[in-house]
Design a protein around this nucleic acid. Structure first.
Length: 188
DNA sequence: TGCCCGATTAACT
DNA sequence: GTTAATCGGGCAA
């Protein structure tokens, strides 16, 4: 049986948690798959939502690790983050892509596309496929509807610059499974 | 109060 | 390669 990820897993450096998440399994209400691509956001990083201090939107980032930070992107999409590091660090990992393995029919229905590679390859797509909305803001990651399991076996993790930023564009804080077809974009 | 712009996506040319 | 959709946060005034 895979090991469940608990709060102690998330209460570490965001740069340790992020690569350790690659290959882990994420389910939401029993639907999901293998984590393929994530990005780290540290509170000292100008691109992080927590960089300018606490607000109503980012409040959960300033709390304890192991909770979901969900925000609206471009007024249209939802994006899912896992809060990491000790309480107050205000750092998180953005979940950018998964390889869909469980609940394919539900994901296709929510997304309105059939192609597996278009179901969950991108932060907005993934939230639509898994049914993640503001209702998931602040929920604990070790309780329903979330289920997180540690990876089993070896995974080759690569790192590179994050996607879609205008600040701190050079920091290599995007992590992914080398060569996966389910990355939102290939690594250079 | 008003204005600018973004951790995106899909549908264009 | 380019652009519309769409809206809340953050900052200037």
């Amino acid at each position: 049986m895979p090991k469940r990820l608990t709060k102690s897993f998330f209460g570490r450096s965001v740069h340790k948690v992020a690569p350790d998440l690659i290959g882990a399994t994420l389910l939401v209400n029993g639907v999901g798959g293998r984590l393929i691509e994530v990005e780290a956001y540290h509170h000292t990083d100008p691109a992080a939502h927590s960089f300018r201090g606490p607000t109503e939107r980012n409040a959960v980032m300033f709390g304890p690790p192991g909770y979901a930070y969900v925000y609206r992107s471009y007024g249209i999409h939802w994006c899912l983050n896992f809060v990491c590091e000790p309480k107050g660090s205000a750092s998180a990992v953005l979940i950018r892509a998964i390889e869909p393995t469980v609940g394919l029919a539900a994901m296709r229905r929510r997304r309105g596309v059939a192609d597996e590679r278009l179901l969950c390859s991108g932060p907005g797509r993934l939230c639509e496929a898994l049914g993640i909305t503001e209702a998931h803001y602040g929920l604990a990651l070790d309780r329903a509807p979330f289920e997180l399991f540690a990876r089993q076996g070896e995974v080759e993790v690569v790192a590179g610059p994050r996607i879609g930023l205008t600040k701190a564009v050079e920091l290599p804080w995007r992590y992914g499974e080398k060569g996966s077809r389910f990355l939102s974009k290939p690594f250079a």
